[in-house]
Simulated scan of single mutants.
Amino acid sequence: MSDTRHTPVLIIGSGPAGYTAAVYASRAMLKPILVQGIQPGGQLTITTDVENWPGDASVMGPDLMVRMEAHAKEMGTEIIGDHIMSLDLSKRPFTAKGDSGTVYTANAVILATGAQAKWLGLPSEEHFKGFGVSACATCDGFFYRGQEIVVIGGGNTAVEEALFLTNFASKVTLIHRRDSLRAEKIMQQRLFKNPKVEILWDHTVEEVVGSDEPRGVEGVRARHVETGAITEIPCKGFFVAIGHAPATELVSEQLDMHNGGYVKVEAGSTRTSVPGVFAAGDLTDHIYRQAVTSAGMGCMAALDAEKFLAEMAGEAPAEAGVYAVAPDAAE
């Protein structure tokens, strides 16, 4: 028999948005439950140095998320290591089912499921995933000590991955389909100065090549976007860093979407098309996509949820931005 848990506020996701929402919801005495998901801590757990988090000139991504989780727990959030498999937003209380078999019901839901790495969609890429093809340099870079590595992409993620991989590789080739990078200028400068890095401009990867016994990557075939000329680049590791897609599978048929699959929220708020459901972080932000903006949206989502529950309970807010909600008022 499955266990059923009820909470005034269910937070799904455990990146900066989710943990910040948990801190604020806990301070409002809403007794939130936060379900961490498959990747507790989100994308920052696979990020090396974070240099744009206010108050820290440099902090390791996993360390920052450990601190955020501890803060949320200290405030009173119940954090559960489960993965939500389905979510019913058709009626309140909303119902979520976890992979553990636990059923969660809630009067308000904060979605903070973040984003997932995009792939090229090549059959050869799929064939060699886990055997030389990866989307996480911090996870797998260690395995390519002294080897040649190829990274594809042109944004901050690609440049960060390429720079990190120079700690292990003998050579890193960055392939980009344009003649200039989209990454921040300071990161580009570091990349251009690194003697281990070579950039192949105006190319796309057409195929990952390798052996099957044992299975492993041996190189990539890159095609020039204008001439069609093929260049073969030997490598033992191929890292895909072409961005991320919002993780909206749970709600794609239940909430309004825009801009290619991001959850749509009302301007200046985190309110979605379903009253009582709020969205924060990368699953709704197609513009900024920063840890600090995700955290800010997590704060907004908790305050929006607090106001919603207060109105449900027939209580007026004590003052702007602060809502006096009894711990179990919405239960």
Results as ranks from 00 to 15, higher is better:
Asp140Phe: 08
Val151Asn: 03
Glu218Ser: 14
Val172His: 02
Cys139Met: 10
Arg190His: 13
Val217Tyr: 02
Ile242Thr: 06
Gly154Asn: 04
Asp140His: 08
Leu174Asp: 03
Lys193Trp: 02
Leu181Ala: 03
Ile175Ala: 04
Val172Trp: 00
Glu213Phe: 12
Tyr144Ala: 02
Leu181Lys: 03
Glu206Ala: 14
Gly210Leu: 08
Lys236Ala: 14
Arg221Tyr: 07
Arg223Asn: 13
Glu198Asn: 14
Arg221Met: 13
Lys196Glu: 01
Ala169Trp: 05
Arg221Val: 15
Arg223Tyr: 11
Val197Lys: 02
Phe143His: 08
Ala241Gln: 07
Ala222Ile: 11
Pro234Leu: 06
Gly146Ser: 07
Val225Gly: 10
Tyr144Lys: 04
Glu184His: 11
Asp179Arg: 07
Gly216Leu: 13
Ile199Ala: 08
Arg221Trp: 06
Asp212Asn: 15
Thr204Tyr: 13
Ile242Glu: 11
Gly216Trp: 04
Gly210Ser: 05
Lys193His: 12
Arg178Ile: 10
Ile149Asp: 02
Phe143Trp: 11
Asn194Leu: 01
Ala222Cys: 15
Glu232Arg: 13
Pro195Met: 05
Val209Arg: 13
Thr138Ile: 11
Lys185Asp: 12
Arg221Ala: 12
Glu213Pro: 01
Leu165Lys: 03
Cys139Tyr: 10
Cys136Tyr: 06
Asn167Ser: 14
Gly219Leu: 09
Ile242Val: 15
Ala222Thr: 10
Cys139His: 09
Ile230Pro: 12
Trp201Val: 08
Met187Pro: 04
His224Val: 11
Asn167Ile: 04
Arg190Met: 09
Leu200Gly: 00
Gly216Ile: 10
Ile233Leu: 14
Thr157Lys: 02
Arg215Phe: 05
Thr157Phe: 02
Thr138His: 01
Thr204Glu: 15
Glu206His: 09
Ala135Tyr: 13
Ile149Thr: 02
Arg223Leu: 14
Ile149Cys: 06
Ile199Trp: 08
Gly153Ile: 06
Ile242Ser: 05
Ser134Arg: 09
Ala169Thr: 05
Gln189Ser: 12
Gly237Glu: 04
Cys235Asn: 05
Thr227Ala: 12
Val225Tyr: 06
Ala222Tyr: 03
Leu163His: 01
Pro234Met: 05
Gly219Glu: 08
Ile230Leu: 15
Thr157Ile: 10
Val209Phe: 06
Ile230Arg: 14
Ala135Gly: 13
Val151Arg: 03
Leu174Ser: 01
Ser170Thr: 11
Gly155Met: 01
Glu207Leu: 03
Lys196Val: 00
Ile242Asn: 09
Leu165Glu: 01
Thr204Val: 15
Lys171Ala: 07
Asp202Phe: 07
Ala169Asn: 04
Pro234Trp: 03
